[in-house]
Amino acid sequence: MVTKTEESQLKNLEIQVDNGGGGAWEFLSLVRKLKVRRSDKVLKHGLSILNDPKQRSTLGSEEWTLYEQVAVAAMDCQSLDVAQDCTKALRKRFPESKRVGRLEAMLLEAKGSWDMAEKAYTSLLEDNPLDQIIHKRRVAMAKAQGNISGAIEWLNKYLEIFMADHDAWRELAEIYLSLQMYKQAAFCYEEVILAQPTVPLYHLAYADVLYTLGGLENLQTAKKYYASTIDLTGGKNTRALFGVCLCTSAIAQLTKGKNKEDKEGSQLHSLAAKALEKDYKQRAPDKLPQLTTALKSLTLSS
């Protein structure tokens, strides 16, 4: 997680570096620490440090870390020549290293020679079957090839061991979503929520899945999760507000005639509608008519 202060620090440094104010190394270190994706900037500034022998020598042993960082960034930007040079330099310095081996495999992957990359990863895994990064690379590779079911298979295998890795669960949930396998996705989102119960985005995603699944029970649950999203975000999440409205109208449709526990729910619904209207008035007044018609159609159908 990137905190607000770190984010602003990163932004300041980025602007400073972009305008030639120095501090490139600090910027690169921060990018590495926060694990953010700024490949183009990393490539540009990292390379300029690496190409300057004087600057490079002041880094000491950190030089090799920089080589690795630049190599990965270069792969991300498809500057394969640069990536190749960096990897070669690293290989020369660390002839036996597995970490360089991983980098080489990633280079193969970036070039699109899937088979060779696969072979390289497999041999690396034989040496250390618990290397999380390589497991994840494999999933990413399957996904990049469009082999979604393969990706699911790898990811499940990975999760069998590293089952507390909630990022992997989220990835799996998103893959399942893309295949419209909502039940499985719901399970994955439950897992993510368990790991981080107070992140509203996961509640929202879970509610979306439940709403899509449909059925009275799921809809009611979905509405509750939309409500929790509203609570956790302080009512600022438009999607959750819409979700509450949609859920209410769908529930009303399903329970038409029975009409028992509708009363207290309808208050949340109308409140959400009002909040939406207020929000639209403030930020997009020209879209307001569309909103009112949409909301009207929802209430009409109920």
Binding site: T221, Y225, A227, S228, I230, D231, G235, L268, K274
Partner: peptide, 12 residues
């Protein structure tokens, strides 16, 4: 979660 509905109402 049921409590959250009430809380969401208050927030809204």
């Amino acid at each position: 979660l049921p409590n959250f509905e009430q809380r969401a109402e208050d927030v809204l």
